[in-house]
């Protein structure tokens, strides 16, 4: 049987040491037995390696940074769509999701489908809102507090004890073992990501993660739990293994049912020695290790495309445990001409 052909545009092509999910999402799509995907890359920077991976991506277009606003993104997408006739866009960065969520009805009018969380779902799981989220949906979250000045740090020891975790509003987190360290981390993170800074109780245990997808009606369409087995100095998984963790799956099912989560997501949790689970973060998109789910028997990006196109997808609970991923770095040799093209024309 001939596979159905679809054109999918994907962001997050920064397959670097802190990788974006774009390339793993594309590899998942290419693994589809049902569809034949033509992939269009959407990039922000000429150094995103995915731009030059011509075996995976047919053509890449620069798009404006999220800070440029929705209108300039829409204008650029209108042009790209006029050339490429995009069926589905899969955005893979937290920072760009707001614009894509706001534009989704306009994109649909153009014939471009998406399958994104609602604005409410996206906003209420922000790191700064997580404590409230935990109370609302009955998920344990470590105690946390927002601070706006280093003057608040000396008193934190009484409230949280040391060590404690200092986190940025969007990215970055470090463990501080003393007020001096907390002050230094505060300056480092706030300088990069702004205020407020989130102070979180340190929860000892093992970090476990789950990649999943919800249908927007309360059903968990697929979920695969993973434990990182090798972590980089940036805290990113360089290797991981699928695990049999029913409690984590139950939490994901509960979260999706209660929030009616729509689209891909990642749960980052700490499992304590007493088998208590604490939510550290919800990422509102697929993680960079989503291709492991394909290796374990579930293709979440393919399911997302089907749901974006209004097709019915049946929930899948089966996956193989003990499937591992190990990342590697690879030097591509590219002609300067290619760099010139994407840098000057914004297309390659």
């Amino acid at each position: 049987m001939r596979k159905k052909q679809l054109t999918i545009a994907v962001t997050g092509l920064n397959n670097i040491d802190s990788p974006g999910p774009g390339i793993p999402v594309i590899r998942s799509l290419i693994a589809s037995k049902e569809f034949s995907f033509r992939i269009i890359g959407l990039s922000y920077d000429s150094m995103e390696p995915g731009i030059y991976m011509h075996d995976l991506i047919e053509k890449t277009y620069h798009i404006p940074l999220p800070s440029a606003g929705q209108q300039s993104l829409l204008k650029r997408l209108e042009y790209i769509h006029s050339v490429e006739k995009i069926d589905v866009i899969i955005p893979n960065f937290d920072a760009e999701l707001f614009n894509f969520i706001k534009l989704q009805s306009k994109l649909l009018e153009m014939g471009i489908h998406t399958f994104l969380p609602t604005l409410k779902q996206f906003e209420e799981r922000h790191k700064s809102e997580l404590a409230e989220y935990g109370i609302k949906y009955g998920i344990k979250v470590p105690k946390s507090k927002l601070i706006y000045s280093v003057a608040e740090i000396p008193n934190l020891g009484f409230e949280f004890g040391y060590p404690l975790v200092v986190k940025g509003k969007f990215y970055d987190a470090s463990v501080a073992y003393s007020p001096e360290q907390a002050i230094s981390i505060f300056h480092k993170i706030s300088g990069k990501w702004g205020l407020p800074i989130i102070i979180q109780q340190f929860t000892p245990g093992t970090e476990v993660n789950l990649t999943g997808i919800g249908d927007g009606k309360g059903h968990l369409i697929g979920a695969v739990p993973m434990r990182k087995t090798y972590i980089t100095d940036k805290g990113k998984a360089w290797a991981g293994v699928t695990i049999d963790d029913q409690q984590l799956l139950d939490i994901a099912k509960h979260m999706v049912k209660k929030t009616k989560w729509r689209g891909g997501f990642e749960l980052e949790m700490i499992r304590t020695d007493d088998d208590e689970y604490y939510l550290i973060e919800i990422n509102p998109r697929f993680p960079a290790w989503v291709y492991l789910a394909v290796g374990a028997g579930q293709n979440h990006p393919e399911a997302l495309v089907k749901m974006a196109l209004g097709e019915k997808v049946i929930s899948s609970e089966k996956y193989k445990t003990g499937r591992m991923f190990v990342r590697y770095s690879y030097d591509m040799i590219i002609d300067l001409k290619e760099f010139e093209m994407i840098s000057t024309l914004g297309e390659l």
Binding site: T242, D245, G322
Partner: peptide
């Protein structure tokens, strides 16, 4: 029950990934 044992002496705990 779910502990995986192989002939080489490799033991895998699927609950934790260890």
């Amino acid at each position: 029950k779910n502990l995986a044992l192989s002939d080489t002496g490799f033991v895998f705990n699927p609950s934790t990934g260890d």
